[in-house]
Design a protein around this nucleic acid. Structure first.
Length: 288
DNA sequence: AAGTGTTCCAACCGCGTGCTG
DNA sequence: TCAGCACGCGGTTGGAACACT
């Protein structure tokens, strides 16, 4: 016996969502909040599967979603997190609050795989040419650079966390207001051929703005922790030997009172098997 | 201008997991 | 303990948009 369908297929609409359907869905979420998706079709009269409603909300209508091309910064974070976590898109997306797991997954499958393959092939050529020079960086130099990175990362994390603590947490009303703005923007986009991509500094609500700035801070911390800047110039071997984020976070943990963001970070990192990280992670394994 | 190939992304599908009775 | 249910996740697909010939 196969698994029963998540909802009655008869009369369930598929395919692209219309503006009218979006408005209905957003109205529902404004009233009831996200969740209980099973009730959405019954309550609203939408002829959509509950799954489809959830997906539409999380991937498109949810407030705070940034659309448009990925920044270099985001790209680097994705590369590092993918190398660390594998294809755990939801986990990766949790560190890029404005991007959905679907977006990141799509971006990875279309852009990053290509780029990394290029990078890898270039690296292989370089390695074959400069094989005898491959250990040019001494252990002492490496440790010194690592220590600098850790110091920078810790400072960046502190900054990010302190700004998060001082910022007013958005009320649910504000969150849903920004959702309404999302819809308004979408409707405008449907009317006009070319949308004006919403950037952090654009006409999106202050709620979104605060998310943007926070994301920048946190990602900045990550860049330092993971040595992102060195990625482009480094080969996979060097990455596999790079500093353990566990060590950094563990040290920060001792110095900082726990905050929500740090706890999430810690839990995630502590769930990660350090041993596997040190022995297995390399770009090669993730380029399939 | 028309045909063909390629890219991109929204949406779907099936499975895993956690919760509840 | 177990079955049923709802939700979340990752892989995959379909088709619109774009690029190329």
């Amino acid at each position: 016996m196969g698994r029963p369908p998540c909802c009655d297929k008869i009369g369930v609409k598929k395919g692209s969502w219309t503006p009218e359907e979006d408005i209905i869905l957003v109205s529902y979420v404004q009233e009831h909040g996200p969740g209980n998706w099973r009730a959405v079709p019954a309550t609203t009269g939408l002829r959509r599967c509950s799954k489809s409603c959830r997906l539409r909300w999380t991937n498109y209508l949810r407030p705070g979603i940034k659309r448009g091309s990925f920044t270099l910064h985001e790209e680097k974070m994705i590369i590092q997190l993918q190398a660390l976590l594998g294809n755990k898109w939801a986990a990766i997306a949790s560190y890029l609050p404005e991007r959905t797991d679907n977006d990141i997954k799509n971006y990875w499958n279309t852009h990053m795989k290509k780029k990394l393959k290029k990078l890898q092939s270039a690296s292989i050529v370089e390695t074959s040419v400069n094989d005898s020079k491959s250990h040019s960086i001494s252990r002492g130099q490496w440790e010194k650079r690592l220590q600098d990175d850790i110091t920078t990362a810790k400072q960046a994390l502190r900054d990010a966390l302190s700004s998060e603590n001082t910022a007013d947490s958005p009320s649910s009303a504000a969150v849903y207001a920004s959702s309404t703005e999302n819809i308004a923007r979408l409707l405008k986009n449907w009317v006009k051929a070319e949308p004006n991509e919403s950037k952090c500094s654009s006409n999106v609500s202050t709620t979104v703005d605060s998310v943007c700035s926070k994301e920048e801070d946190v990602s900045g911390a990550f860049e330092s922790i993971f040595g992102l800047e060195s990625l482009e110039a480094s080969n996979s071997d060097e990455f596999s030997r790079s500093a353990s984020p566990l060590a950094v976070v563990g040290e920060i943990k001792q110095e900082e009172d726990s905050t929500s963001t740090l706890s999430v970070l810690e839990n995630w990192l502590l769930d990660f098997e350090m041993k596997d990280y040190l022995t297995d992670v390399s770009f090669d394994e993730n380029l399939v």
